[in-house]
C-alpha cells in the first residue's frame, strides 16, 4: 500500500506538487493522468526517490510505502529501489545480453548463486510474457529485440529483484499499438502480485488498465477516484473537460 500525506515538492523555486494526499491499495493499478507538466511524473518518481538525482529539489509531507516513511533518514535509497521497481517511458535496456539485463538487479544485489539467478531470469521473463520469444537467444544483445520486446525486457528486469511496487512512467508511449496492447495485458496480469502506479497520456489506456485514476493539473491532485467514475461521471468540471478531450 502506498500513501502520501500532504506532500509538497519543489524544483528549486518551482512548486511542482501541491499538498497531495492519496492512497493506493496493494495489488491495484492506479493511473495518473493530466496534461504535460502537471506533476504526475514527478509524483510517480517520489516513490523510488528518483527525484533525488535532480539537484536542488525539496520534498515535504509524508510518503509512506507499507506504512514506512520512505523519506526518513534511516531509509537506504538503494534498498528502497529494490522494493519499488520502475519502468521508463522509452525502453532503456543495458548494452548487455538479454540474460544479463534481467540478471543485473540480482548481480548488483550481490546474488552469486548461478542457478538461482537463472531461475529468477526465467521467471521474470515469463512474468513479462517475453520468455517464449527470447528463450533461445538469451545471450544475444538486448538491442536485437524490437521496441516492444525491449520494453517487456525492462519490465522483466524490474521484476527480477522481486519488488512489491511497480512504477510505470508512460510505458507504452514509445510503442506501436500491438506492443502497447501486449503491455496492457501484462499490466492486468501483474496486478495480481504487484501494486502498480502508471503515468499515462493515453486516456483509453488509463480507462482500460486501472482501478483508480488520479487527475493532476498544475501540481494539484484535482480528482482521485474509481476509474469508472472518473471517466463516466467525474465530480470536477476540469476533470470532465480533460477526459472528454476538451484540453490537454
Amino acid at each position: 500500500m502506498i500513501e502520501t500525506k500532504h506532500v509538497d515538492f519543489y524544483y528549486s523555486g518551482f512548486h511542482a506538487l501541491k499538498d497531495i494526499s492519496m492512497r493506493m491499495e496493494a495489488r491495484t493499478v492506479t493511473a495518473l493522468i493530466g496534461p504535460s507538466g502537471c506533476g504526475k511524473s514527478t509524483f510517480l518518481r517520489l516513490f523510488n526517490r528518483m527525484n533525488d538525482l535532480i539537484d536542488d529539489t525539496r520534498v515535504s509531507g509524508e510518503c509512506l510505502i507499507d506504512g514506512e516513511d520512505i523519506y526518513h533518514k534511516s531509509v537506504a535509497v538503494d534498498e528502497l529501489r529494490k522494493r519499488v521497481g520502475m519502468v521508463f517511458q522509452k525502453p532503456n535496456p543495458f548494452p548487455k545480453s538479454i540474460f544479463e539485463n534481467v540478471a543485473y538487479g540480482l548481480r548488483v544485489n550481490d546474488v552469486r548463486d548461478k542457478s538461482f539467478i537463472a531461475c529468477r531470469v526465467e521467471a521474470s521473463l515469463r512474468a513479462a510474457a517475453l520468455w517464449g520469444e527470447v528463450k533461445d537467444k538469451l545471450r544475444e544483445s538486448a538491442f536485437a529485440l524490437s521496441g516492444g520486446q525491449q520494453q517487456r525486457l525492462c519490465i522483466a528486469r524490474a521484476l527480477a529483484v522481486s519488488p512489491s511496487v511497480l512504477l510505470m512512467d508512460e510505458p507504452a508511449s514509445a510503442l506501436d499499438p500491438i506492443s502497447t496492447s501486449k503491455i496492457e495485458e501484462l499490466i492486468a496480469d501483474l496486478k495480481r502480485d504487484y501494486t502498480i502506479v502508471i503515468v499515462t497520456h493515453n486516456m483509453q489506456q488509463a480507462a482500460r488498465v486501472s482501478d483508480k485514476t488520479g487527475f493532476f493539473m498544475m501540481g494539484e491532485l484535482v480528482e482521485f477516484g474509481e476509474t469508472r467514475m472518473i471517466f463516466s461521471d467525474p465530480v470536477n468540471e476540469q476533470t470532465r473537460n480533460y477526459v472528454n478531450g476538451r484540453f490537454g
Binding site: 528518483m50 538525482l53 521497481g85 521508463f88 548494452p95 538487479g105 548488483v108 544485489n109 524490474a158
Partner: peptide
C-alpha cells in the same frame, strides 16, 4: 536513461558507474 535504469534497480552510484556507464 541507462543510469536511471540502473539506479532504479537498487544499484549504488558506484555500481552504476562501473557496471553500466563505463562499459
Amino acid at each position: 536513461a541507462l543510469r536511471e535504469a540502473s539506479l532504479a534497480l537498487g544499484a549504488t552510484r558506484w555500481q552504476t558507474i562501473y557496471r553500466v556507464v563505463i562499459p
